[in-house]
C-alpha cells in the first residue's frame, strides 16, 4: 500500500477528483459565473429527452461498431497477411497502412471534408464521368447516412494502429510452431484458427477497450470534417458535450453528458471483458 501510495495519489488527483467534480457539477446549473445552483437530476432528464442526444449516441454506437468489427478484424487480417508474408514487399505495405495514423486528425478532417463535399472531389469525378457540371454529392443530406463518410475515414485512418499491435504480438509466436504445423499438413485457415487466434484473444480484448474509449471520446476529426452537421445529423456525444458546455456556458449540463460518456465506456468495457474472459476459458 505504501509503495503504491504515490501512484494512487497522482491517479486520484488527475482522474478521480475531476470525475467526482464533474459528477457534482452535473447536478447543478452553472454558467461559470457566480455559484452553481443545485438542480437535482434536471440535467439528466433534459439530456435524455433531447433527440440530439439520442442521435449522437446512435452515431457513437456506429463508430464503436466500426471500430470493433471493422478496424480491429481488418487490422488483424492485414497483420496476419504481412506476418505470414502472403504478399510481396510486406515492409512497404506495413508503412503504407500505418501512415494515416501518423497524420493529424485536423489535416485528415480537412482533406476528407473536401473529398466528400457536395462540390468536392467525388462529386467532381462523378459529374465529369456523367457529364453533369452541377452534380452534387448529397450523402450528408440523409439523416441516417450522414455519419457514413466519417466511418469510412476512421476505418482508413486507424486500422493501421491495430495492424501494428497485432503484428507485434504475432511476431512473438515461435516460427517453429508454424513450421511444424505446415509440415503436419495444416492449411492456412487451420493455422490461423487453431494456432494463431487463441493467443491473440487478450490482444483483441486490449484493442477493443482502446477502440471503445477512443470511439466515445473522439470528436476533433468529425468537427473539422462536418461540424456535426448538417443540423445534428453527424453529431457525436463528445461534440454534443463540448457545444453544450462551451458554446452556452452550461457547465452543469456538459458535466452530465461527460458522466454519461464515462458510464457508457465503463459498462461497455465491463461487458466486453466478461465476454473475452468467457471466450478465453472456452478456448
Amino acid at each position: 500500500m505504501l509503495l503504491t501510495g504515490p501512484a494512487l495519489f497522482v491517479y486520484a488527483l488527475v482522474i478521480v477528483l475531476p470525475v467526482l467534480y464533474s459528477l457534482v457539477l452535473s447536478f447543478t446549473e452553472w454558467s461559470g459565473v457566480g455559484w452553481p445552483r443545485f438542480v437535482g437530476f434536471e440535467n439528466y432528464s433534459r439530456m435524455l429527452s433531447d433527440p440530439v442526444f439520442w442521435h449522437s449516441l446512435r452515431n457513437n454506437a456506429l463508430i464503436v461498431l466500426v471500430s470493433l468489427i471493422g478496424q480491429i478484424p481488418l487490422g488483424f487480417f492485414l497483420a496476419y497477411i504481412l506476418y505470414r508474408r502472403l504478399v510481396r514487399l510486406p515492409a512497404f505495405f506495413e508503412a503504407v497502412i500505418f501512415f494515416p495514423t501518423l497524420l493529424s486528425p485536423v489535416v485528415v478532417g480537412l482533406l476528407f471534408a473536401v473529398v466528400f463535399a457536395p462540390v468536392g472531389l467525388i462529386a467532381d469525378l462523378i459529374g465529369k464521368i456523367q457529364g453533369l457540371p452541377l452534380f452534387e454529392l448529397l450523402i450528408f443530406n440523409s439523416k441516417s447516412m450522414a455519419i457514413v463518410p466519417y466511418l469510412i475515414v476512421i476505418l482508413w485512418m486507424y486500422t493501421g494502429i491495430y495492424m501494428i499491435i497485432f503484428l507485434a504480438n504475432l511476431q512473438k509466436i515461435q516460427s517453429e510452431t508454424i513450421e511444424a504445423a505446415v509440415l503436419d499438413g495444416a492449411s492456412e485457415w487451420g493455422i490461423l484458427i487453431k494456432i494463431v487466434m487463441p493467443g491473440q484473444i487478450p490482444v483483441f480484448l486490449t484493442t477493443s477497450i482502446y477502440a471503445i474509449a477512443g470511439s466515445l471520446k473522439g470528436f476533433e476529426l468529425l468537427w473539422v470534417m462536418t461540424e456535426g452537421g448538417p443540423s445534428y445529423y453527424s453529431s457525436v456525444l463528445g461534440l454534443y458535450m463540448i457545444e453544450s458546455t462551451f458554446s452556452y456556458y452550461k457547465y452543469g449540463f456538459g458535466s452530465a453528458v461527460a458522466i454519461m460518456l464515462i458510464l457508457l465506456s465503463v459498462v461497455v468495457i465491463v461487458v466486453l471483458t466478461q465476454v473475452a474472459e468467457r471466450l478465453a476459458r472456452e478456448t
Binding site: 462540390v119 450528408f140 443530406n141 443540423s231
Partner: peptide, 16 residues
C-alpha cells in the same frame, strides 16, 4: 437555395 447548402462551407461557396 441548393439542397447541398447545409454541407457547403463558406470557402467552397466563395470558390464557386
Amino acid at each position: 437555395i441548393a439542397e447541398s447548402e447545409p454541407m457547403t462551407t463558406r470557402e467552397q461557396a466563395m470558390s464557386l
